[in-house]
Amino acid sequence: MTALDEYRRLEALGLWRERAEDQRREVVVSLGDATLVMSAPSGEAVGHWSLPAVERRNPGKSPALFAPSSDSEEELEIADAEMVAAIERIRTAIARSRPRPGRLRLVLAAGVIAAIALLGLFWLPGALTRQTVSLLPDAKRVEIGEDLLTEMITIAGRPCGGQGGRTALMRLSVRTFGTEDAPRLILFPSLIPETTSLPGNFIVTSASLAEDYETPEVFAGYLLAEGLRRDLRDPVEIFLTEAGLGVTFRLLTTGAIPEDAIHAHAARLLSRGVSALPDDALIDRFATARISTQPYAFARDVSGESVLGLIEADPMRGQANEPVLSDADWVSLQEICSS
Rank of each mutant, 00 (worst) to 15 (best):
residue 5 D to G: 10
residue 10 L to K: 03
residue 12 A to P: 03
residue 17 R to D: 05
residue 27 V to T: 05
residue 34 A to K: 13
residue 38 M to S: 02
residue 50 S to F: 11
residue 59 P to L: 00
residue 62 S to H: 10
residue 62 S to C: 10
residue 65 L to Q: 12
residue 76 L to P: 03
residue 76 L to W: 06
residue 78 I to F: 01
residue 79 A to N: 04
residue 83 M to Q: 02
residue 96 R to V: 15
residue 106 L to F: 12
residue 107 V to C: 07
residue 117 A to M: 10
residue 120 G to D: 06
residue 124 L to A: 13
residue 124 L to W: 14
residue 126 G to Y: 06
residue 128 L to P: 07
residue 139 A to N: 11
residue 141 R to Y: 06
residue 147 D to F: 09
residue 151 E to H: 03
residue 154 T to I: 11
residue 154 T to F: 03
residue 161 G to N: 14
residue 163 Q to M: 11
residue 165 G to I: 05
residue 170 M to R: 15
residue 176 T to H: 04
residue 177 F to R: 04
residue 182 A to K: 08
residue 185 L to E: 06
residue 188 F to K: 01
residue 190 S to I: 13
residue 191 L to D: 02
residue 192 I to N: 11
residue 197 S to Y: 07
residue 198 L to I: 08
residue 207 A to D: 09
residue 207 A to Y: 11
residue 218 V to M: 06
residue 218 V to T: 12
residue 223 L to N: 04
residue 224 L to R: 04
residue 227 G to P: 05
residue 231 D to E: 15
residue 233 R to D: 13
residue 245 L to T: 13
residue 248 T to E: 03
residue 253 T to D: 00
residue 260 D to A: 03
residue 262 I to G: 00
residue 264 A to T: 08
residue 267 A to E: 12
residue 276 A to W: 11
residue 282 L to M: 04
residue 285 R to V: 08
residue 289 A to W: 01
residue 290 R to A: 14
residue 294 Q to I: 15
residue 302 V to G: 05
residue 302 V to Q: 10
residue 303 S to L: 10
residue 303 S to E: 13
residue 306 S to R: 12
residue 311 I to W: 00
residue 312 E to S: 11
residue 320 A to N: 13
residue 321 N to S: 14
residue 322 E to P: 09
residue 326 S to W: 05
residue 330 W to N: 07
residue 330 W to V: 07
residue 333 L to T: 08
residue 334 Q to Y: 02
residue 334 Q to C: 05
residue 336 I to W: 00
residue 339 S to T: 15
